[in-house]
Computed example of a mutant assay.
Amino acid sequence: MNFLNSEKAQGLAEYALILVFVALVVILVLSLFGTNLESLYNNAIGQIKAVIP
């Protein structure tokens, strides 16, 4: 029984590490491309508003 619990704990730790890695990648991408994404978003919204009065 103890062996099964350690496998569950290992799996949980692996998922936590993956989640932390994904969060770091998202933060890095947003910090590098944040202003470009903002202008792209604003452009798209402006074009949508021009088409739909």
Rank of each mutant, 00 (worst) to 15 (best):
F21A: 13
S6Q: 12
V22T: 09
S31V: 02
L24V: 08
V51D: 05
V26T: 11
S6C: 03
L12N: 13
S31A: 14
Y41S: 07
V26Y: 04
Y15T: 10
A9T: 09
V20W: 09
N2P: 01
A50R: 07
A44T: 09
N2T: 07
L28M: 05
N5W: 08
N36Y: 06
G46Y: 00
P53D: 10
L30T: 05
L19N: 09
L40S: 11
T35Q: 06
F33Q: 10
G34Y: 02
L12D: 14
L30D: 14
L4T: 09
L17M: 12
L12Y: 08
L12M: 10
A44H: 03
L40H: 02
S39I: 06
L24K: 02
V26C: 07
Y15M: 15
L32T: 01
Y15D: 15
Q47M: 06
V22H: 02
V29H: 04
N2H: 11
V29M: 02
P53N: 15
G46I: 00
A16N: 07
Y15P: 00
A9I: 10
S39P: 00
N5M: 03
L17S: 09
L19A: 13
L32G: 02
L32A: 05
G11A: 11
V29D: 04
Q47T: 03
V25H: 00
L28K: 01
L12T: 08
L40T: 04
V25E: 00
T35I: 03
A13N: 13
A44C: 06
A16Y: 05
A44L: 14
N36G: 04
L19W: 10
Y15S: 15
Q47Y: 04
V29F: 15
P53A: 12
M1W: 13
I48E: 09
Q10N: 09
E38S: 14
I45H: 01
A16P: 00
I18C: 08
M1P: 02
Q47K: 06
L30W: 14
V29C: 02
S39T: 13
V26W: 05
Y41M: 07
A13K: 12
I45Q: 03
Y15Q: 15
Y15F: 10
L40C: 04
A13G: 04
A44G: 02
F3L: 15
V51P: 02
I45R: 05
G34H: 03
L24D: 01
F33I: 06
A9H: 08
V51F: 12
L17K: 06
A13H: 08
V26K: 03
Q47W: 12
A9D: 07
P53L: 10
K49N: 08
K49S: 05
Q10M: 12
G34E: 06
N5H: 02
I48S: 03
E14D: 11
S39V: 09
I27W: 08
Y15R: 12
I48K: 03
I48Y: 08
Q10A: 15
I45G: 04
T35L: 11
K8A: 14
P53S: 14
I52P: 00
L17T: 05
L37I: 15
A50N: 03
M1H: 12
S39A: 09
L30E: 13
A9Y: 01
I45S: 06
L28E: 03
S39N: 11
V20T: 03
F21L: 12
G34A: 01
N42H: 05
